[in-house]
């Protein structure tokens, strides 16, 4: 087992803004030698007890790490991929003993489910979907949504995993343009939201498969990634990031944005811009939103964290060990922030 525990002295300095409760608690090191690509958290039953585990992905292997009594992490299982590299982990929000992964080169070509044999003895993987897959998201109630394109049309498929291991498939009515990202709508159980390549937001009814509305959100939101959506008082609130956003606008460099949309009229208005503090350069590379906190890896190699209610950046994690940050995720199982570098180091805050 390859474990390294970082000493307290190695804690990277947060800036003076407000580091809050963000403290480095442990570090995982993958010695596989291949490039580290993603991290996530998952509940896994080990010897009859559900444990909050960490999943790490390198190019050709995905590993499950269980918490040890010492506060460190021990590698439990590894799934290996011989031909197609891993692009991202696709966590299933309320499922134990199962995680999905997307594999491909530039675009997703396969989605696989990773699990263990019923006696917990060996790693198993099941091929769920192949094709030119543009977007995938694990949903609540054991569902996985993905969109894929053929030459003439787009398929949006929802797969439901039954307890016994079988899968049920349902198709949602596809919009004309390519879907870039999906998000469940908190507060409206059967609503699913998608962002499209033409700067539209679409809403489906997951139960009936109906495409309910297509809403144009303006040309300043190009290639938006939707990180969170919730419905409140008849309005839809959406947290977006903009990979194509300009580096600097009058109010600073915007990384995330909260917009409010009236789904009945398709009218929208910007509510809040989440900008970098003065003196910080960079724009969004990749990030994650959980509850009221957004985290983003920036082109500068720094991780920035915003309190979405306060509206400002509350912490900055500068690059450490001469390695820029490559990805950042909030843990779905506890209050950890998981930050990774390409060399295989994963830091748990």
């Amino acid at each position: 087992h390859s474990i390294e525990q970082t000493e307290l002295a190695d804690v990277p300095a947060c800036d003076s803004l407000n580091p809050g409760n963000l403290q480095l608690v442990s570090k995982l090191k993958n010695h596989s030698g291949s490039c580290s690509v993603d991290v996530s958290a998952v509940w896994w039953e080990i010897a009859g007890v559900k444990e909050p585990c960490i999943i790490t992905a390198c190019e050709y292997a995905v590993s499950l790490w269980k918490p040890l009594d010492t506060g460190q992490w021990g590698k439990l299982y590894s799934w290996h991929f011989a031909e197609v590299p891993v692009l991202q982990i696709v966590p299933m929000p309320d499922v134990c003993n199962l995680v999905c992964v997307a594999l491909g080169n530039l675009e997703i070509r396969e989605i696989r489910a990773l699990l263990c044999s019923s006696d917990g003895g060996c790693e198993k993987q099941v091929l769920l979907r192949t094709g030119n897959i543009h977007a995938v998201l694990g949903l609540t109630q054991r569902r996985l949504v993905s969109s894929s394109r053929t030459l003439c049309d787009q398929q949006v498929e929802v797969m439901t995993f039954a307890e016994g291991g079988s899968e049920e498939k349902q198709f949602l009515m596809p919009p004309e343009e390519t879907v870039l990202t999906f998000a469940e709508v908190q507060g409206t159980q059967e609503a699913l939201l998608g962002t499209t390549i033409m700067n539209n937001i679409v809403i489906w009814n997951l139960k009936t498969g109906q495409l309910l509305k297509k809403m144009h959100i303006g040309d300043s939101y190009q290639a938006s990634v939707c990180h969170k959506a919730y419905s409140e008082m008849g309005l839809l609130f959406v947290v977006l990031s903009h990979p194509c956003a300009k580096e600097r606008e009058p109010s600073g460099s915007p990384v995330f944005q909260l917009i409010a949309i009236n789904p009945k009229t398709a009218l929208s208005v910007g509510v809040m811009l989440y900008c970098l503090p003065q003196g910080q350069a960079g724009r969004f590379l990749e990030g994650d939103v959980k509850d009221n906190f957004a985290a983003a890896v920036l082109t500068s190699g720094t991780i920035a964290i915003w309190d979405l209610l306060l509206g400002h950046c509350t912490a900055l994690l500068p690059p450490i060990s001469d390695q820029n940050w490559s990805f950042v995720k909030w843990s779905g199982t506890d209050s950890h922030l998981l930050a990774g570098q390409k060399d295989g180091n994963i830091f748990v805050y």
Partner: peptide, 23 residues
Amino acid sequence: CSQADLGPISINWFEELSSEAPP
């Protein structure tokens, strides 16, 4: 944001859009 910017708001937007959209 003011309600005037966004037009008339309905708390039951999801049910209403589901009843209006093609099956």
